[in-house]
Nucleic acid binder design. Structure first.
Lengths: 223, 223
DNA sequence: TCTGTCTTCACCCCAAAGGGTGAAGGCCGG
DNA sequence: CCGGCCTTCACCCTTTGGGGTGAAGACAGA
């Protein structure tokens, strides 16, 4: 098992909550996995074995980000680390060069073994799909409300707090297209401005922070 | 029971990030408080003196969850451990059988003394009522971040998704004053626009969000 | 094939938000 | 008493967001 030293891992472009939690979770597994870098930008600055990256449920635009990361020799194997286990997102990520796709709902030790499996080249696709009813919902946020992929994507970015200019940078759309998608999106979800859209997004499971996954086998409803 | 030994505490239904943080914070106080269980479900599995539980400001059945915990003899005293110190949430929790309500923003040693006070039966309501040594936790969310009452008020309204005009209706301020407060508020919390302010507000316990039952079929605003 | 939906973008317009400055009165503490 | 902070408001200006229209290509299904 320990024939090789600790796996060197980086976390790229994630929220501080997640960053802190990851570091803390993996601290006790430091012989197995060491988080050597936590980066708010989208690149890594030093050679690592595995780079964890969250696509944040975006459909197209992030494909490129994954591709770039995968092409970066410093980044090692790119593992998408996300709350959203939608098959379409998974395959999109893998198609774009991600080595594996791991759920953020994993507890520390499962995360560690998933990362080890990835590092050994044994795991190529999905990490343990947690059997507990929550994560799996076949559709991804917004789709059942009739949002098109693009609309959902811009809404996700809005829900991150980005302005239109930033959105059009990330998506490589023109500012006009961004506005168009935002408008049609507002009509679909029935809001009239950005603030309400953000709240809608949070209520509907965009923005992967807390309140998203609540394990309870007791048979509660839960989204 | 073990009035002499360490208080036995459990943390129920929180994310591993928080769980890790709590355990790590209390490690150095293990003579006073021992976290004997961290449970992802909503129950405890062994007798403890205090059960920490986060309502996650939440959506619906919290009241019930708290009641159930409080009714569980294994759980001991139920202490709601939350970011959100909204008075309505506090009193709801207490009405449902919680023994106390403690802020997640407490540093380790204050958390420890709060838990000790609870365990001795001295603390029945809020955690540090800002008299005891440290002023963590104020009357309203955001006070500790240096927001003035008015700033906090407008921020709360922003976090509800209101526009400036609506805010000045509710507050009986002129539109100019509203803008002034918003600007100074932005400076204080370090954001540059409304979207980020909303996210900040949500992260910091504004938006009590009570009774927001998500109705999927109706779809529209219910509020 | 034709129709509808999705995607992309452009141009125009107006309302809203963001931001600076100045100023007045109130209250508190040194 | 004075300096500092909070509160309130006004006037200014620039940027952003929201909304309407039109249009083109891509792709799906009837």
């Amino acid at each position: 098992m320990r024939t090789m030293g600790a796996i060197r891992a980086a976390l790229v472009n994630d929220y501080e909550v997640v960053a802190q939690g990851l570091v803390s979770m993996l601290r006790e597994y430091r012989d197995a996995v060491r988080v050597v870098e936590v980066d708010l930008s989208r690149t890594v600055g030093q050679p690592v074995d595995i780079t964890l990256y969250d696509t944040f449920a975006a459909t197209q635009g992030d494909g490129e980000a994954v591709r770039k990361l995968a092409a970066n020799p410093l980044a090692g194997k790119v593992v998408v680390y996300s709350w959203n286990l939608d098959p379409a997102l998974v395959s999109a990520a893998l198609a774009n060069g991600a080595t594996a796709y791991v759920s953020k709902s994993l507890p520390a030790r499962h995360l560690v073994s998933a990362l080890q499996a990835v590092h050994r080249g044994e795991l190529r696709a999905l990490a343990p799909a947690d059997g507990s009813g929550t994560g799996v919902r076949g559709d991804w946020p917004g789709r059942e409300e009739g949002l098109t992929p693009r609309e959902a994507e811009v809404l996700a970015l809005i829900t991150q707090g980005l302005g239109n200019a930033e959105i059009c940078e990330r998506t490589h759309l023109s500012i006009n297209s961004v506005k168009t998608f935002i408008r049609s999106c507002y009509r679909r979800i029935g809001v009239t401005n950005r603030s309400q859209a953000i709240l809608w997004g949070i209520e509907h499971g965009f923005r992967p922070d807390r309140a998203r996954i609540r394990v309870d086998e007791a048979g509660r409803e839960q989204r």
